[in-house]
Each structure stands twice: as structure tokens, then as C-alpha cells.
Design a protein around this nucleic acid. Sequence first.
DNA 1: CACTAGATGCTCT
DNA 2: GAGCATCTAGTGA
Length: 173
Amino acid sequence: MLWHGEVAVRLTEVEAYGGARDPASHAFRGPTARNAVMFGPPGHLYCYFSYGMHWAANVVCGPDGTASGVLLRAGEVVAGLDLARSRRGRSSDRDLARGPGRLAQALGLGADQRGADLLAGGPLRLEVAPPPAHVSVGPRVGVSVAAEVAWRFWETGSPYVSGYKRSPRAPAI
DNA sequence: CACTAGATGCTCT
DNA sequence: GAGCATCTAGTGA
């Protein structure tokens, strides 16, 4: 469960990214100004801009010095619905945080939150919640390399996962 | 409802 | 100067 101010999102879909060992990771080619956060201590927010219009939120999970992170791909807005709605504009409640870009927008994440500490007790904080009863595993989406690595996890049957274009059904692996 | 195509700007080479 | 861990709008069934 990720909180930002009064808006809370229950995560329903995530993707794991290794560091130097993962060709699909931004950290594969070494640290840069953008991904430096991933090399830092865990529990920090790695926020980056992509496709010219969307932010994607990651949580650093490896120890200090090891690049690794988890991309928050989708979630369900469970608090601060009005605020999230106003940020997302006209959109059905189900689409408020379905997709990385939408998730970041609904939470109001951006350049200001880059590298923020999620465990410091500020307005932006990560809360541990019980895992969903059923979790599916599959290949990552939108990754051009190492797509065969099944490092994507989502809540089985949840309408809040992206699923995205092709394969609306959960590929059973 | 399902699918296709186009837009968009920051970041690294 | 090209690449992107994507979204939205618009068209067709």
C-alpha cells in the first residue's frame, strides 16, 4: 500500500528489475544521473520520465550499492479518490491507477518525488499490507530484451491490473 | 467492445 | 540524434 498525502493505492501489479545483471534495467549500463537512486539504499522512490509524457514509479529494494528495483505497474486507489480523480481528469475509477503512467499521475508523483525516502514517515510512505490471496506470474511487458524472464507479478483476476493491449487474459506460466 | 496508429519530451550516446 | 519499463483517441465490427 503506497500513500502520498491523502491518496492511497493498493498495488495490484508490479515488475521486478535487476540491476547490472538485467539488460532491461536502466542500471544495466552503470549508474547515471537518472538511475542513481537505484544504486542507493532500499525504500527510496525511483521516479523516472518516459515516452515524453509519463512518469513511472519504482521502489528501490536492493541494499545500498546494488541496483535493483520494483516497478509499480498498476494499483487500486483506495483513499483520496476525489483528489486522484481530479489529477487524472475524466476517467473511470478502474482506470485511475491502471498502468504505470496513470499510477504515478493519480498519486501525484513527479520530479519532486525523485529519490524520496518512503520509510521516513513523510507524506510519501510505503505501508506493508497483506499480500493478495492469488498472484500470477508472467513475462514483463514493454521490455525489448530479456522478455522471457518472468518477473512480472499481479493479483489474479483483479480488474485493476493493466494487462494492457494484447493478452487481456492472464498468461499462465 | 476491440484493435490500430500516433503522439510526446527527457535522457544517454 | 535516437531511443524509450506508455497512453489516448479514433476507427471499424
